[in-house]
Design a protein around this nucleic acid. Structure first.
Lengths: 257, 257
DNA sequence: AGACGACAACGTACGCCGTACGGAGTTATT
DNA sequence: AATAACTCCGTACGGCGTACGTTGTCGTCT
């Protein structure tokens, strides 16, 4: 797999699809469609959740809906746009309680924000592999940006700092969840569990590993492997988040002086 | 694109390839090969650097080498293993001066480490899209892990904390570079510049954007867009790194007491 | 009522992809 | 000289995204 690229088509069409502003509801000639964008997007999300981005093909989605592959193209310009729609759609799940990210202490707010994104990526691992460079500017993305800005509002920070901070926390979650989630992904795709993989690989590592050349790794690796292998996988998330929040605290303290 | 998965084949074969422990040098029957693993990996890296992971196909790599597609399979078990080899190979570029990450103040060391990884991902954007869940345990990966552990050694931290810290900084870079690099990626792949894309999209955003519903975004978005659009793209990297280092400083201070 | 035209559905086909398989040619060893 | 191992690679299969054109359905207009 590699990252899907999107936004290659007509922006007007993409925006109309994202905001569902296409049909005016007036009756039109031609048969009523049994399909619509929402059903297609929902089926695609279900498929990607269950089997990963690699399994997401127009033919598979169509099959899921009991329809021929080309039928999808009546409703969606192409796969890229479908992926955009999928992402914007699932982003709507974030922060069901909108007030939670904007009330209470800043530390709690940011922790909630980070945790929500972390859970989100665990629920929809495929979202990790989507380009974040040119996000689909649909309602889901807009809402997410707004709510996250509220979480860092009123702290005496400049607008620039607010934007940078939101980007930072999102980047941190993306980066950190990657390491954990990709293990789960790999297990599902390859059918080989983490333990099986390590058991198969470890003997060969032992053959080539030179403790003279890598003394620090020789000391830390085994301890970390035992401790972190057995523990809850999101320990690195909590650890990182604590460090990050401490650092953000310094900034906020400075800003309030 | 979506993330490439690897490590599906025989671990013994993979490790032998990674460590180049296959041939014993003894003369063997059969014609001498004009090709070898290094040449294949180098060609693949060149291709991926220039045109991205999506353009990396066995046929293209073979063409680059003036050879038929299936010829590659004589030297490499499959595409997954080739990608493993590519990653381990380019990781060897990191930290050409090995002492730099292990000497001086911890803050400088970590800054150097992060910057090196940031530059690395800018040079080889495709590496971002590779699964970090089950890294190819070759010499490049081992060396990287060792050198990064040295950067956090001697600070009074436990082995676990050292491992977590290295993971954290790496995760931060991955997450942060993604946002920047994918803009560049998108530009290369789609042929549409960031400005062109925004110019084409902005009018439609204006139509659907509701400043009542998104007051904070309405306030911050334009400022951030102007300021960060014009500035050096790695400003968010520097900003994030400063926050992160401040947070790590708190941990190290605690550990030394 | 009948004709028209817009629309949904979709069969076929093209050029990509990774790679399984088996054959042809080459060369060090026996 | 015979053998066996080895490299190279032509062909083919089942997947992919999707361009194109046909068919059949239905709301609308005459």
């Amino acid at each position: 797999m590699a990252t899907e690229f999107t936004g290659t088509g007509d922006p007007a069409r993409s925006m109309a699809l994202l905001w569902r502003t296409a049909g005016d509801g007036g009756s039109k000639p031609g048969p009523r469609s049994a399909l619509d964008v929402d059903r297609i997007v929902a089926a695609a999300v279900r498929l990607a959740d269950a089997e990963g981005l690699a399994a997401l093909s127009m033919r598979r989605v169509a099959a899921e809906l009991g329809v021929a592959a080309m039928t999808l193209y009546t409703h969606v310009p192409g796969k890229g746009e479908l992926v955009d729609l999928m992402l914007d759609s699932v982003l709507g799940e974030l922060y069901p309680d909108e007030d939670v990210v904007a009330s209470g202490a800043w530390r709690t707010r940011l922790r909630t924000l980070a945790r929500a994104n972390w859970d989100f990526f665990l629920r929809h691992p495929w979202a990790l592999h989507l380009s974040s460079g040119r996000p689909p500017l649909g309602p889901g993305v807009m809402r997410k940006y707004e709510l996250e800005l509220r979480a860092v509002d009123g702290l005496g920070l400049s607008e620039i700092q607010m934007d940078l901070l939101v980007t930072l926390v999102n980047g941190f979650v993306r980066g950190t969840v990657g390491g954990v989630q990709e293990k789960v992904d790999a297990e599902r795709v390859t059918g080989i569990s983490e333990e099986q993989w390590w058991a198969a690989t470890e003997p060969y590592v032992a053959q080539v590993f030179d403790a003279q050349r890598y003394p620090t790794a020789a000391r830390v690796g085994p301890v970390a492997g035992e401790e972190l292998g057995a523990y809850d996988p999101d320990r690195s998330f909590e650890f990182g988040l604590d460090r990050l929040l401490d650092g953000i605290g310094v900034l906020i303290l400075d800003a309030s002086r």
